[in-house]
Write a protein that binds this DNA or RNA. Structure first.
Lengths: 205, 205
DNA sequence: AAGAAACCAGACTAGTGGGTCGGTTTAGAG
DNA sequence: CTCTAAACCGACCCACTAGTCTGGTTTCTT
């Protein structure tokens, strides 16, 4: 099955570079040749592995993007401590500029969501389902926090999750330009204020 | 100078319909013919009035979009009361589905911002400057609220403004699909929580 | 060794969409 | 009524890009 290995390797290279360039320039503003030239591959190679540009991108979404969201935004939530600081840390980390040349700034979710929204329903649905996974996990973690007495009982966990996601996506829109260092700091600070408001009151005595 | 009137009228029709369709389908996903057909105008007519598609859109931004942002998000802030409810109301109103067929959902700012971000720096800058106007006004209103004792003294007004804008932009991303009625409600509720956190404590007695 | 299957090169097709250009209509001034 | 200039028309041009096709090369199987 050596051929399968070769296949996997080429597809992997294609997906990796694809995500990189799509993230950089946007999906519709990137031609296949842009990617192919960069990898010294040809149209023939590409269409041997993927049946269309759309199929290709869905592949990228379901492999690479899903993984990233899990690693950055879902798994860090599973600490047994107070969920609020855990959420805060995951968001802060996700907004971090990429180490070295890697994907930066909580990457792309908002960008792709917006780009495909009015253009390609199928891809749009894939992306939304990723968001949905994140949301579900956020909600469940918040609810657990309520049970554990870290979050006030009156809090609407679904609403809170939606709100957190919205603010995060919005920050990505604002951080697109260069002057960003303090934006992230400001965001985290204000989020803390909000978290204070939904945290259980620690009544001393 | 009747000709100038004719000119203005045609340009006005073009801009209005343009904003409508661009908002609906996105700028790059809308061809000039899409708009021209709708108005029964020709390429020739278009290029008689605008020097390019880009020039055309900048025109739309600087006339129509600026106006809408002012009307919906800036002017409502100028009440002499507590700024927090005023902000809340302006956001709620801006997220309202358009009456009749008008532009809906706090319209387009986030969408266009994202669409042009990696594509057209000039337009991108125009849009950012609109955001900036909103931000400046938010900050000044917040600061006034601090002076008037409605907002806690420790609050970072710039940070708060950024945060409010981010959450608003993010909501737009989330509200793109159909199931939205309660999203807005959730958002407003959570925003209230946040506002509670930054409001001056009313110590009774 | 030979044949098949996977892999890849690159010219070509077809469709799209921004922008151009010469000609035609319209409307207001004299 | 004429004459001019602005407004407008629409066929055409050109650059770009997703996707196809043919043919060649490598790699595995038997």
């Amino acid at each position: 099955m050596q051929m399968t290995l070769k296949r996997r390797e080429t597809m992997h290279r294609l997906c990796g570079k694809g995500l990189e360039i799509f993230n950089e320039k946007g999906y519709y503003n990137t031609s296949l040749d842009d990617i192919l030239n960069e990898l010294s591959l040809s149209k023939g190679a590409f269409y041997h592995h993927f049946k269309s540009k759309e199929d290709y991108f869905i592949n990228i979404v379901q492999n690479l993007i899903v993984q990233k969201v899990y690693a950055l935004l879902v798994e860090p939530l599973n600490t047994c401590e107070n969920p609020l600081p855990a959420i805060l840390e995951s968001l802060e980390n996700a907004l971090e500029p990429g180490k070295k040349n890697e994907m930066a700034y909580g990457f792309m979710l908002n960008d792709f969501l917006t780009e495909f929204n009015k253009r390609n329903e199928e891809i749009s649905n894939h992306l939304k389902s990723i968001l949905s996974v994140w949301e579900v996990n956020l909600v469940s973690v918040l609810k657990r926090g309520k049970v554990d007495g870290h979050i006030a009982r009156h809090v609407d966990c679904e609403g809170a999750a939606t709100y957190i996601i919205a603010s995060f996506l919005g920050m990505r829109s604002l951080m697109m330009d260069s002057t960003n260092g303090q934006l992230k700091y400001q965001y985290i600070q204000q989020l803390k204020q909000y978290f204070n408001a939904i945290a259980a009151q620690r009544v001393a005595a």
